[in-house]
Design a protein around this nucleic acid. Sequence first.
DNA 1: CTGTTAGCGCATTCAA
DNA 2: TTGAATGCGCTAACAG
Lengths: 349, 349
Amino acid sequence: MRRQSVTIKHVAAEAGVSLQTVSRVINNEPNVRPQVQERVHAAVAKLGYVPSLAARRMGGSRSYLLLALNDRDRTIDGWKSGEGTDWVDQMLMGGMLKCGEHGYRMIFELVDTHSSHVEREVQAAISSLRPDGVILTPPHSDNPLITELLIRQGIPFARIGSPQPGEGFAISMDDGKAAEVATDHLLDLGHTRVGFITGSDEYALSGERLEGYRRALRRRGLPEDESLVGRGDFSYASGAAAAEALTSLPDPATAVVASNDQMAIAALQVATRKGLGPDRFSIVSFDNTPIVRFCHPPLTAINQPIAAMASAAAELLIRKTAGEQDLPDARVLPFDLVARGSSASAAGA
Amino acid sequence: MRRQSVTIKHVAAEAGVSLQTVSRVINNEPNVRPQVQERVHAAVAKLGYVPSLAARRMGGSRSYLLLALNDRDRTIDGWKSGEGTDWVDQMLMGGMLKCGEHGYRMIFELVDTHSSHVEREVQAAISSLRPDGVILTPPHSDNPLITELLIRQGIPFARIGSPQPGEGFAISMDDGKAAEVATDHLLDLGHTRVGFITGSDEYALSGERLEGYRRALRRRGLPEDESLVGRGDFSYASGAAAAEALTSLPDPATAVVASNDQMAIAALQVATRKGLGPDRFSIVSFDNTPIVRFCHPPLTAINQPIAAMASAAAELLIRKTAGEQDLPDARVLPFDLVARGSSASAAGA
DNA sequence: CTGTTAGCGCATTCAA
DNA sequence: TTGAATGCGCTAACAG
């Protein structure tokens, strides 16, 4: 049962140089004559040599591993429910592919934010993997137990969807601006009673979005009617309750911005049941997961650049590990609003 | 430097035993006095020790890594299109969680089946990662370039969705039976002209499904009309073309089994455009991805146990690596048919 | 039952 | 510009 595979030693022998020289060449280090480089490259190609991740990590200081941490319960619920949340897919697409470009791997892990052993869970993953960087997604991005642990350990990290400045790369879209755009879209359609359904307070971006909604109203000189703000927690049930309330007001809302697709779909069902078409109750949602295109009517939605955020996070972490200086400590990526049938001109407007 | 973390050495010192004894305890090996075990466990808990994956792989013969290989183009297309394919999510749910139970990690990688360098790509991943096992998904499951490479390398692997016997664990559902059940469902509803839209020939299970459909017809003594079989390739376009043909026959089909959701949705659009309700053109699909619940009418579908298959694959590979004997070399997991609005009693039946 | 010895494949010192 | 030592954290093989 010998380890049959080709190692740096074989390459060195083939090229007639020392181990060290091979190491230098494959790591693009200076101080190797072009001619020797050539020989080494030829030997690598001939033998099909690929360095062992484990050995690299043992000898050197890098592991070529990025760890992506997602919320356990929420992710598993999403998978089980089959509701089509494609957050994980988009993360993989952005993060994994970017890692691949640089010879890195992304390892995807679930940890439980609510558990008292978050720290232990994260610490265990780190001890075992020794990643060069960690990508945090909401709500972990705003969990000080996690961020402080990473700071203590000196592991670079990126916070996705966390608008707050602070340690680690902050990668986000402008959630406030997005809510503003969504609200404007409805106001432009002639709606004047535009409601808002918030997300869970556990997510810092929930507050940002609410603020954006308020800014849009203020800019038009509209009153900020607190009864138009429904408190949700991203769940279908909370969306249904909020929509029910909004449409039952003495002066009902004729449009709403929901902080995610689940709540928007709930709102749509409420509207449908009450016989309210888009002219009587328009809806704009956040997320733009696949299912919104198949609702009736399809949902107008804010499209979040999840893949782009994951990609940016991976890139910054890799560059930082590579020793690059002067990296920006925050990046705000562009979003867009996809107009579909769920938003229409207000009745009588 | 940052090599701060607690290693087996610290644990050994703390417990007052040798490195080897600690190693034995954390690996659940025999020949350690309970009392000593106790001491070691206490030291591990006290120091928060977690073994380094990389070091384990260097010293020992296991890497605690499983490699899951998916088709590059198809996966990325799925992600980009936002059509809600949740194959990857289900794989992660089944495979990753099972790995977690055993201290393993699953690394997800994309390789291009059509490329002339499939072998090189797979070889590179293996050389770098040295996984204890590889999980193959269609169409890789039936790609001899890959399976033979793995056999040569002596790496255990599992083939998901590959009905054929052969080297490696064959994990599948009974695709033929499923097609039979789907066809029966339509026949039971009184349809007599039941069509079938095949998947790509590149997938071995496409043939299985077609056979199942034929068996169902034969069992009822119905003629096998070749014009009722549309050739598809899993794409929307191919589904639309096939549905168009089926509904345009002199004696048109009044129902169809489509080999995946995309083609079923295409068929649904064709039917809707032609004004054919489920009584005139019923549809059953394979996959049951999230979006089928949001179609109008929602699609009746065969639900594939993807998570269960990934879980079984991971478990068998882990157990094999652990040295277990007498593992089954194939497992067939149960599927189910989820009846929804797209299938209904035939008009006049 | 337990400890000792010898690597695994590489990067990081150094020395030449 | 190159090469020779050293050790990362762990397990396998063998001693005791």
